[in-house]
Design a protein around this nucleic acid. Structure first.
Lengths: 255, 255
DNA sequence: TTTTCATTGCGTTATTGAGACACAATGTAA
DNA sequence: TTACATTGTGTCTCAATAACGCAATGAAAA
């Protein structure tokens, strides 16, 4: 089926497969070159950036729906996903944007479930940046990473959803395996520290960070050091998954 | 309209007013006689206890829906409500219970939106026990408080929702005005301590609690003491709302 | 009236933890 | 061979926390 036909079909008959009025939106976080990033899509029709969202199959749990959408976007499976808030303002799907869509797609307001009101459940995802191969889906023309402190204008209330996600990430830092999911398997102490600093949005003392994080026992030091740096080479570390999970359950109250 | 007619009408035509597939469930907490309690309803038709739930009007935000449902149940308005989790297992509305309902109410499975799949958004509410006048709604025969460590069997996944609510309450203790909403305006130090102990599910040192909580500056000591106790009478306190709100924003990391 | 006793308010001490900073070690680049 | 940015480890100070002592209170018992 050619593209326009697929899209029109989704607008006219999608409600046969999906629940009406409910969607999921994923805020996909990655960490690269000491910078926390978020993956956004540019819609073909709206011409503006948005989160990666999708709908819920009639016999599917929302977590599964979020996983499925995430896989379509990143190719990754079994990713860490966390629901954090439901956005339900009746005015959040504004008429203005819908009318733009309507004109572009050629489906009347009264013909499609897509123009009805939607309640969306926000998830945040933590992915390994280097393992992701961003692929725009059929509704999008581009798919790109943005630094979290330099995001573009977004569709609907997606900026608000993004802000909430970042805030939730901050609050749940002590209870979720954020480092484990965002970093490479091997990483250096400065990299881990930068991740914490970015999420918490504050500077931490290098030496105290080192001591505190080691004291938790969640790290295993490797003998290998990083190559090609013009100064003392830092050691690589990896997570001791057993201890890490134990520590998270108790909620390590660092920082 | 008589009762049976109202109910049947809701089953057959409710979807004209409410969103399909989405509901809210409130876990209503109160504190009385040094005991944390939860308000439950006993359904006329299922004959088993449940949380106070409801549906979302076609042009209503979920928070407003939760407030509306709460008012119908407790008579109270402008109550502290916090969404904490979405429950979406496709199997959560089990056929077994629906069939029981169906027989009792006399509406066929294929006739009613009420038998379709529901995703529910969990809220917890903090209310002043003495201001509540529990009133069963038209679907319920009874409405009663239960101690949180002695709850009865509940319908569907409501026990799981309740457990999650209690857990969220624990995690958010430092960020939400839990004491302010659950206690009387005037309260004693032992009462406040018992509330914290119940929610955290652990004993706290009486003297250290006293000192730490006063150090935050969120309390105002009154000159009045409690009457009619067979030992040294504790002073009454009330919250210094200005300082309390300021402290919550920063998140006081006590206990 | 006096004594008893559970409980409260306030205080002291010992231990732990956090933050600030010093300094030697490392390894590429000048 | 030296300079230099950065890392790994250690120390010191101060504040916060936990553990415990004791006198004061006031209704109930004697």
């Amino acid at each position: 089926m050619e593209f326009d036909k697929v899209l029109k079909d989704h607008y006219l008959k999608g409600h046969q497969n999906f629940l009406r009025h409910v969607s999921v939106d994923n805020v996909i976080f990655g960490f690269h070159q000491n910078d926390l990033k978020v993956l956004l899509l540019k819609s073909k029709y709206a011409g503006i950036w948005s989160l990666s969202g999708g709908f819920i199959l009639k016999d599917e749990a929302i977590d599964m729906a979020a996983q499925r959408v995430l896989k379509e976007r990143t190719g990754l499976e079994k990713i860490f996903l966390q629901q954090f808030h439901v956005f339900s303002d009746p005015a959040r799907s504004t008429k203005k944007i819908n009318q733009q869509f309507m004109k572009n797609i050629g489906v009347r307001m009264d013909e499609s479930w897509m123009y009805e009101r939607f309640i969306t459940i926000g998830f945040y995802a933590l992915v390994n940046f280097t393992k992701v191969n961003p692929q725009p889906d059929i509704f999008s023309e581009k798919c790109e990473w943005f630094s979290v402190d330099n995001v573009p204008e977004m569709i609907l209330d997606h900026k608000q959803i993004f802000d909430e996600a970042l805030n939730s990430l901050r609050l749940q830092l002590s209870f979720h395996p954020i480092g484990y999911n965002l970093l490479e398997q091997k990483f250096t102490m400065p990299e881990l520290q930068k991740l914490y600093e970015t999420i918490l949005d504050k500077k931490l003392d290098r030496r105290n960070f080192h001591r505190k994080i080691l004291a938790t026992g969640i790290l295993k030091k490797l003998e290998e050091t990083k190559k090609g740096v013009a100064h003392k080479a830092p050691f690589y570390y990896k997570f001791d998954l057993r201890n890490y999970k134990k520590a998270l359950k108790a909620g390590m109250g660092l920082f």
